[in-house]
Design a protein around this nucleic acid. Structure first.
Length: 569
RNA sequence: GCGCCUGUAGCUCAGCUGGAUAGAGCAACGGACUUCUAAUCCGUAGGUCGCAGGUUCGAAUCCUGCCAGGCGCGCCA
């Protein structure tokens, strides 16, 4: 509908400009006014146009109105305020949305995936396989998963990937931590060193390892050549199993878990470095000491530096040590280039805010190597502060007092975790209160929305009990829906596809959550003011279809967030 | 010191590719269950949109400077 109106207006505007011999293109954009006296849609084109044409805005608006050919659904349009064009739709045609929802069901709001759908690689979570995920990872996971669902609904071909950092120093630390736990299990007295992973989860892993291998056998083998690979592989496998399991508890799955190791083993990282040398994109140099931050034992060291400054970065970035040992950055580039080679020209990465400093350098490198501009599109998700009853939950990785994502999901439930993480823009830090998340009030909006859905179901059950049989949707007289509450629900449902579209285009999945809270509010308000089932048969049928449609849209929206839509609460 | 993010009601947040009287919820106060679920609803009250300039017919929204908080700043990821 919005699109139709915009086209009609745009046509009139173009014509007007043509007549006046003005080249400048003015783009029509419609908004939904907050005040309903301002109509169903409003356009402000006359204002910017007034400047071009050197005429008062209201006069320009008049000329536009004279020239425009409205679609049938338009009741009337008038000029208001400083020069807004307010458009009113024939209400009956708006209310027909309830039939559209009935026809389309789960598909309402979605667009069909076409053959030539744009391929998008969506990388998220990518937590290091060195321990359990924390709530911060959870936020990224939920945001990424929901965005994936939304993009899919809006016709993109989405490929979900998890990048496993299973190479590098941290993996060595993980393995040595596990080895010590194994030794401890065997009764040998060793202490974890500073920096090794103290979490108890490794004790359990050590136990399992010893069920497969006798300690004596492990101890007899050559430590570096034979035992170490066993320990390393076992540790990574167990950590990833735990992570997948925890993600599954949130209803999150990936198409592909991409191993960093494979990039090294296949020689892609080494080849990348050679290529960069050949292209003169890297050079042996020394970086100045970082400013403002004390670096203990700073020593100027020669490294292979990537010329990212040529692509918009502040300083060149180290890619490998002098001896050629690659840094994680080299693997990271190889990974994104690999995505490109697999045909992904759109890459969306969801990272924690603490990785914000790496956006420019990765984009610079990707641009240098593939020519892609602004890829990957990185969404930085801000931190989560975990509180309980308003008190900060103290966490220390070192002390092992660490609240894991899994513990939080088990305590408050996946639906509450998911919805709460989606109610804020990713740019704002999020206070997640464990007590509030369990409470059943508007402070915990997930129940508010779910309750609205359950309430719809209750009405439909009641109708069935009373022997009221719903007639075919197309036969319903939707023009009976004339109260403010009904109109407001109709308008909200009409805007659902627009909300989804905006959420997809701007990568702002939280919009769906905010929308659902509005729709639920509309439903609750309607419920208290009007009865669905009454003696007026025609009205009953119209309202039954209305609430059925609301229930459907609530359900559709909740599915975008991976949250369930219960029929009873 | 530099970069990114944030600053809107007592609290948590929407509104931010400029538009009409800045919105919700919680908390406060007052009401609504013989009715399709009160996990709900209705009403009252609550604001120098961090501060100061600028651009514009019009600024919470864009630009600049400042203030405050978070994150980050080579050989970890």
């Amino acid at each position: 509908m919005k699109q139709l109106l915009e086209n009609a207006l745009q046509h009139a505007v173009d014509q007007l400009l043509k007549e006046s011999g003005i080249e400048a293109g003015v783009h029509v954009r419609l908004t939904r006014p907050k005040q309903k006296e301002h109509g169903d849609y409003a356009a402000n084109v006359a204002m910017p146009l007034a400047g071009c044409l050197d005429q008062p805005p209201r006069e320009v608006a008049g000329r536009i109105l004279a020239a425009v050919k409205w679609p049938d659904a338009v009741e009337d349009a008038d000029i208001a305020g400083p020069g807004f064009i307010n458009i009113r739709l024939k209400h009956a045609s708006e209310a027909e949305v309830i039939k559209m929802v009935a026809r389309q069901g789960d598909a309402y709001g979605r667009v069909e995936v076409s053959e030539d759908a744009e391929k998008v690689n969506l990388e998220f979570v990518s937590a290091n396989p060195t321990g359990p995920m924390h709530v911060g990872h959870g936020r990224g996971a939920v945001v990424g998963d929901s965005l994936g669902r939304i993009l899919t609904a809006r016709g993109y071909s989405v490929h979900r990937e998890y990048y496993i950092n299973d190479a590098g120093a941290q993996i060595g630390v993980l393995a040595s931590s596990l080895w010590k736990r194994v030794q401890q299990q065997a009764g040998i007295s060793v202490e974890l060193s500073d920096g090794e992973y103290p979490g108890e989860y490794l004790i359990e892993v050590a136990r399992q390892l010893l069920e497969q291998y006798a300690f004596e056998d492990l101890n007899r083998m050559d430590h570096d050549r034979d035992v170490w690979p066993i320990i390393v592989d076992y540790a990574i496998e167990k950590m990833m199993a735990m992570i997948r399991n925890d993600l599954a508890a949130l209803g999150i799955e990936f198409d592909h878990y991409f191993s960093e190791q494979t990039l090294h083993r296949s020689g892609k990282v080494a080849a990348l470095i050679e290529q960069l040398k050949a292209d003169d994109l890297i050079y042996l140099g020394t970086l100045p000491p970082p400013k403002g931050k004390e670096v203990k034992n700073y020593k100027p060291v020669e490294q292979w530096l990537f010329r990212t400054t040529g692509f918009g970065d502040d300083v060149d970035r180290p890619l490998a040590k002098k001896d050629g040992t690659p840094t994680y950055f080299a693997a990271d580039i190889a990974y994104h280039v690999d995505k490109f080679e697999r045909g992904f020209k759109r890459q969306i990465d969801i990272w924690g805010a603490d990785h914000g400093g790496y956006v420019t350098r990765v984009q610079s490198a990707v641009k240098a190597l593939t020519g892609l501009d602004g890829q990957p599109e990185v969404l930085l998700v801000q931190m989560v502060n975990l509180t309980r009853g308003g008190e900060q939950v103290k966490m220390s990785k070192r002390a092992g007092t660490f609240v894991t994502l899994r513990e939080v999901v088990d305590e408050v439930g996946a639906d509450a975790v998911r919805f709460n993480f989606m109610t804020r823009r990713i740019e704002s830090q999020l206070d997640f209160d464990l007590e509030a998340a369990k409470q059943k009030s508007e402070e915990n909006p997930v129940y508010y929305v779910q309750y609205a859905h359950a309430r719809v179901c209750a009405i439909l059950r009641k109708a069935e009990e009373e022997g009221v049989e719903a007639i075919e949707a197309e036969l319903v007289n939707s023009s009976r829906l004339i109260t403010d509450e009904e109109k407001s629900l109709v308008a909200l449902m009409l805007s659902y596809p627009e909300v989804l579209d905006k959420a997809a285009n701007r990568h702002e999945a939280y919009r769906v959550a905010i929308y659902l809270m509005d729709l639920a509010r509309g439903l609750h308000g309607f419920y208290h003011k009007h009865r669905v089932i009454s003696d007026d048969e025609e009205l009953t049928q119209a309202r039954l279809l209305l609430v059925t449609a609301v229930g459907q849209v609530l359900c559709n929206g909740l599915s975008m967030l991976g949250v369930s839509a219960p029929e009873r609460m």
